[in-house]
Design a protein around this nucleic acid. Structure first.
Lengths: 345, 345
DNA sequence: GCCGCCGTCCAAAGCGCTTTGGGAAAGCAG
DNA sequence: CTGCTTTCCCAAAGCGCTTTGGACGGCGGC
């Protein structure tokens, strides 16, 4: 059933039916009611492609997911982010289209997406330090919002980010307050902007208390369980093992805990862990009391905020760039405790 | 730059340019080369909406993700599945569009998607036992492939599934061989088809060895870390605790391990775990030797297979339904060992 | 009674592409 | 040279919708 057929059924012109359905005033209310009823009865939906062609709007938003061929890992927070964004899209009538793009063809991919006209805006994930994609997108002229930031020219584009620096400074301070002095940072890949900021926060807090920064205590890699495990096992086997760990994600923290417990140490007594917690739906941090002490910030909420910001940018194309810095909340759980008395050896 | 402009630049008609770009034979090779070069130079891409309108093909595939409002959980395997499917789509020129649909509006959602015409086919996730969506989709007439199965009328639609029954029978046999008799099954939600099949496999294996089925040893819930932990803690605290656990996913297994180790028990000695392993990219099962003994089957590969099957179904609309049953592989890791001698009390 | 306005509807153009149905030029055989 | 096929190209219709620019009748004001 298309518009013309529906119009024929009603003995009206396509023009009138279109206007009736889209809420234009030039149609009698009685007629509009008749049209609406018929549309419902016949289960009519306007063809999205035709509508898009006519209006110039795609009513869809593109998410570009970088697929690196060296280390093919899907960001585990991705599905929760999508959920948050998706709900906002849905209630605003937007579709969500995903494009997997490998690192090599990043530049051309965005131009292609823009030229094809399948989307009205783009949501950019996982920006790297000094990510060139932002410049590319700015050049293309399609509205976009970045989940996260990249170090330079923050003002030239819209973003939603967690205050990673503050969050990790906060977490570090908390551990310092508990008397820990050897605090390991099990970070994500340093090429990622958020990882760089987290390390800055960690260093800030150490410096503020006059604790020397020890590069041997900082490790960066993809945020897998394995990375947490291997790193913690390594560090704990050293001559001057850390008494506390800062983890970049709950998944990493799980790996760290495994190494800790495997060594017969007790979490919260012998070793403390503070983790960043994205509040992933499938990895809730404990039932009532948080298992891990964590600086937490819902990635799902971030998804919703990004989506709202982007939709607004699409509606009014020439509004200035907007920014939203979310503060993570420190939740004390069972994985932290006072630093143990200095062990000899 | 659109087709008409490109044609004008070249001094050709839109018809010829279109044919040149789409590989039709009615155009001189010299002209074609000229057109191709100009298209590249001007960075021309045909507008997808217009192309779709003209051809009737959307060159996009829809993934419908159920969002239940009671327990809002995103399937943790989802992102890996998407990755596998996405790569296939990309290399075949298809876009991927995601729709979040809440349980209430499942039926109408599919009709809407079909009528809107944004996609050429649908990939169905996480089918439930006797899932009504399959009937709906069959009625709509849009090609679709199910990742998983539902119990009835397997022949009437295309699916890709792991042989869950066999996999869990296999895992159970393995534990029985090691001498375990009290084997707990920490399953996913029983409403999910795969969970039901897994339990069947478990029961099959017990029955084949004459071991009585104890309903107290079977627990079903969403496959979170918390579920694994809480369930295992409960069961281990009972008067006749299990000596082995079957976990529905690595995430659940992590929770079980936590409960085991918290109780001071040693994995692979006091308690064994066999888990299903979807080979999630962010939760690799160990570095060299698998941490968990597992029946494994890559969900990413399943995504790719689903995508291929669906694209084929779209290309030849009236091919019969196809089915693909993947066998999971048993990988012995460090989480299993001979059943401990019977503890008294 | 005439004019102008308003409310209601419609015809037709246009969005950017594909595809049908020629048509002109070139090539070939007779 | 004629008639036919082949090669290469084009004009125009059409995909399903929106939107511009009227058309038409009824109404009130003067």
């Amino acid at each position: 059933m298309n518009l013309k057929e529906l119009a024929d059924t009603l003995g009206l012109s396509p023009t009138t039916v279109s206007r009736a359905l889209n809420g234009y005033p030039e149609v009698a209310e009685r007629t509009r009611a008749r049209v609406m009823a018929a549309a419902r009865d016949h289960n009519y939906r306007p063809n999205a492609r035709a509508k898009g062609l006519a209006t110039g709007r795609a009513m869809a938003i593109g998410h570009v997911i970088p697929v690196s061929h060296r280390h093919e890992i899907v960001n585990p927070v991705f599905s929760d982010f999508i959920l948050g964004a998706g709900e906002v899209y849905q209630s605003n009538g937007y579709d969500m289209v995903l494009s997997l793009v490998d690192d090599a063809s990043q530049a051309s991919a965005y131009e292609e997406i823009a030229a094809k006209g399948t989307v009205d805006g783009i949501l950019l994930h996982a920006p790297r330090v000094g990510d060139p994609r932002i410049e590319i997108l700015n050049g293309i002229g399609l509205p976009f919002v970045v989940h996260g930031r990249t170090s330079m020219n923050d003002e030239t584009y819209s973003w939603v980010d967690v205050n990673n620096r503050r969050a990790f400074a906060r977490a570090t301070e908390f551990l310092l307050d508990l008397g820990h002095r050897r605090i390991a940072l099990v970070n994500g890949l340093m090429a990622m902007d958020f990882a760089a900021r987290r390390q800055l926060g960690y260093c800030d807090a150490l410096a503020a208390r006059g604790v020397a920064f020890d590069p041997a205590l900082v490790r960066s890699d993809e945020m897998t369980e394995t990375h947490g495990y291997v790193t913690a096992r390594d560090l704990l086997a050293g001559s001057a093992p850390p008494t506390a760990f800062l983890a970049a994600s709950i998944i990493t923290a799980l790996g760290i805990r495994r190494a800790v417990e495997e060594k017969g140490l007790v979490l919260g007594r012998d070793v403390s862990i503070v983790t960043h917690d994205d509040e992933l739906s499938y990895l809730r941090n404990g039932v009532d009391i948080p298992t891990f002490t964590a600086v937490r910030s819902s990635v799902r909420q971030a998804g919703a905020l990004c989506a709202e910001m982007l939709i607004e940018a699409i509606r009014c194309r020439d509004t200035p760039a907007r920014h939203m810095l979310l503060e993570a909340e420190l939740m004390v759980g069972q994985s932290t405790g006072p630093a143990p008395l200095q062990r000899t050896g």
